[in-house]
Design a binder for these strands. Structure first.
Lengths: 231, 231
DNA sequence: CGGCGGCTTGAAAGGCATCAACATAAGTGG
DNA sequence: CCACTTATGTTGATGCCTTTCAAGCCGCCG
């Protein structure tokens, strides 16, 4: 029987911190007190609500988040998807409060850092500056494909986007889609039925396979082809 | 007859620099050498092409830019609109080269600063840090309305977006739309005919008036209502 | 095993694109 | 300054893609 000691927990934590986006901010022992705390969210649990004041940035250790608002007709509008190893919260710096609610798409662990500590550390360690600008710049490019016109185009681009953001060397073109078709539809501005139909097409054409929630991309080139707008 | 002396030129420049987004980086005489140069672009002139390496950020003094790519079917896809007093270029930090071409929508003057100078100065003057994060954060929120489903919703949100980004105290809900319907359509993913039809609707319902390219918003509330998704 | 959320599939309706023709504005050169 | 040319905006008719509504299926979890 395994007895979990503080040491083991520590090891588990540090190993999960290796890839953390806040690594530069906390792996160093001298700085570890800056991280306010780790938060564990169950599926569908809220990280924060709409309109809540902005204080913290979050590094997503595992799991995924969505930000969303509800329109007057009661439809959920998903504004952003944030995955493992990404930093969430930048978008709220501008208005000083969160524009959207943020909810866990699955069991999710985030590391919280206060924005003021973040700024402070950034000033002490200017070599982090480019890293942060780099990561914000990356988020500026997220969701560019939402401007694509046709549904297959958007969905193909979405799959490629998520895959490049999730895939590692081990996982080779096979990854867990961390959300329901409903969520995808709300994100892409498409009905769930449309998502289902188009994915069926993709499967029929041997472009991807889906079992459970695992997507396997068989023909990346064909997907990019579709995303690029070829017919 | 007016003789233009260096002094007058200097006054003209500084006055045009008052509102400049790079103000903090160059108004101070000690720093003025950091700005590499001012570039004047004619309508439809390219600031840079697709795939060009990223070296500079640009503060838009006057005029406007669009970034775009051409899809395989030859359609122009506008990814971003950048207006007077905004900073353009952040999105290319991530990939170190520009993902899109950038073109002037009208006569445009930009101030160019090299990214390395920018980083350097940011390190020397950490009080600028929040300002820059603030501005990047703002850009993260741009174009959120592109996810809106219906055409009138998108167009209403677009008008409101541009107006808040262009309006000053003097100009009071009346502003120059710095682009063609073609451009708007390419940006919103709608046909120019659709833009025309919906704007005609807006005019008929006394929500806006348009003369030349000047838009006057008569009923802001109704516009936000439409943008929010009421019918 | 039974219930529920999520996915699938079909038929009908609707919104927007497309095509076409025209109107108007802007830009050019004589 | 005007005639010509080109770019941009307007309006109508048709067709297609996606939504919507409806029903059934599957897999998961208690």
């Amino acid at each position: 029987m395994l007895i979990i000691t503080r040491n083991i927990i520590y090891l588990m934590l540090t190993s999960s911190c290796i890839q953390c986006s806040f690594g530069a901010f906390c792996l160093n022992k001298a700085q570890i007190n800056i991280i306010k705390k780790e938060r564990r969210l169950k599926k569908n649990e809220l990280l924060h609500t709409d309109n809540q004041p902005f204080d913290h940035l979050y590094a997503i250790q595992c799991g995924a988040l969505k930000t969303y608002s509800i329109d007057p007709m009661g439809n959920e509008l998903i504004h952003g998807i944030y995955l493992k190893n990404e930093i969430y919260g930048y978008d709220a710096i501008y208005k000083k409060h969160h524009l959207f609610s943020a909810e866990a798409l699955s069991e999710t662990v985030v590391c919280e850092i206060s924005y003021s500590s973040f700024l402070e550390l950034l000033q002490k360690k200017p070599e982090l500056l480019h890293l942060i600008l780099y990561r914000m710049s990356q988020q500026l490019t997220f969701g560019a494909y939402l401007k694509f016109i046709t549904a297959p185009q958007r969905l193909a681009a979405f799959i490629l986007d998520i895959s490049t953001r999730l895939l590692t060397e081990q996982s080779q073109s096979r990854f867990l889609l961390p959300m329901t078709y409903q969520d995808i539809g709300n994100y892409l501005g498409l009905a769930t039925e449309t998502i289902s139909r188009i994915l069926s097409q993709f499967k029929k054409n041997r472009i991807i396979t889906i079992e459970r929630k695992y997507i396997h991309i068989l023909q990346t080139q064909l997907l990019t082809h579709i995303a690029d707008g070829f017919k």
